[in-house]
Design a protein around this nucleic acid. Structure first.
Lengths: 136, 136
DNA sequence: GACAAATGACACTAATATGGTATCATTATA
DNA sequence: TATAATGATACCATATTAGTGTCATTTGTC
């Protein structure tokens, strides 16, 4: 079981890099070079982050990506939700006939609680907090 | 992102059913009927639980599955580990050259902490606690 | 012993998710 | 107008997930 998929991981690191870079815009070319991720894949990821409003892009020569919002305002859970669709853990697998008690099912309730706890923890980690130290 | 895969979910519910059943042995036929899960799939799952020592099986007519250990001693994390290989979240995706600081990487550290917290929570939920109420 | 009812072992398949590539269109700047 | 950038989008390969099917073996019962 893994918590972060690769696109989330790449996205977080790319955002961190952009957040730290002095000239605010970073191009895919630069990010590819500095972060060592597959170029096309990274492009797709950045485009997505742009669509979702975390980054802002400018086309044309000299273009690139910059943060659309402050690094304090972006948390891990935001990025995960984009690429992994949030934590939607307890989609019951049993048919209604068999397990009609959705609301009181104990397993479902317990898992739901854990889910909430994990989500809360993931919401406490902001990009700002990740770039405080030397490393991403 | 889902925490439990389907086989884990089925496994837990099957174990719960077996734990509650009076005549200790439960056959695949009965479980299939009572829990509404696909028969062959369930069989495979139960076999696995037997191999892993959570259940004990008896072959031949009148055979079936029963708990090999007490319901208090089986926790969610045990079952997850069998079918989902435990929580192995922070396998770094970046090449060594790019990200050599495995030990101090902040993202990795934070995710590791969350991982531990989630695992701890999953270890507190036993089969016994799940079957206390009416529902599984 | 023969039959029936059970699991064991294991090969196979279908569907979906993940990780990644490639191409053409569009935009902006020099 | 050439060039360097992103936008949109289709495609592909592999892995994982979910599930099926079959033959072998064991065990209880008539």
């Amino acid at each position: 079981m893994k918590l972060l998929t690769r696109d989330t991981d790449y996205a977080v690191r790319a955002i961190c890099f952009i957040a730290r870079s002095k000239e605010k815009k970073a191009s895919v070319a630069e990010l590819t070079f500095r972060l060592g991720m597959p170029r096309s894949f990274l492009r797709k990821i950045l485009q997505r982050l742009n669509e979702e409003g975390l980054l802002e892009s400018s086309k044309g020569k000299g273009g690139g990506f910059e943060l659309a919002i402050k690094p304090e305002a972006i948390v891990l859970l935001d990025v995960m939700r984009i690429f992994q669709g949030g934590l939607n853990l307890n989609n019951c697998f049993l048919k209604k006939r068999i397990c009609p008690e959705k609301n009181v099912c104990r397993l479902r309730r317990e898992i739901g609680l854990i889910e909430k706890g994990t989500a809360a923890a993931l919401s406490k980690i902001s990009i700002a907090s990740l770039i405080k130290s030397r490393h991403n």
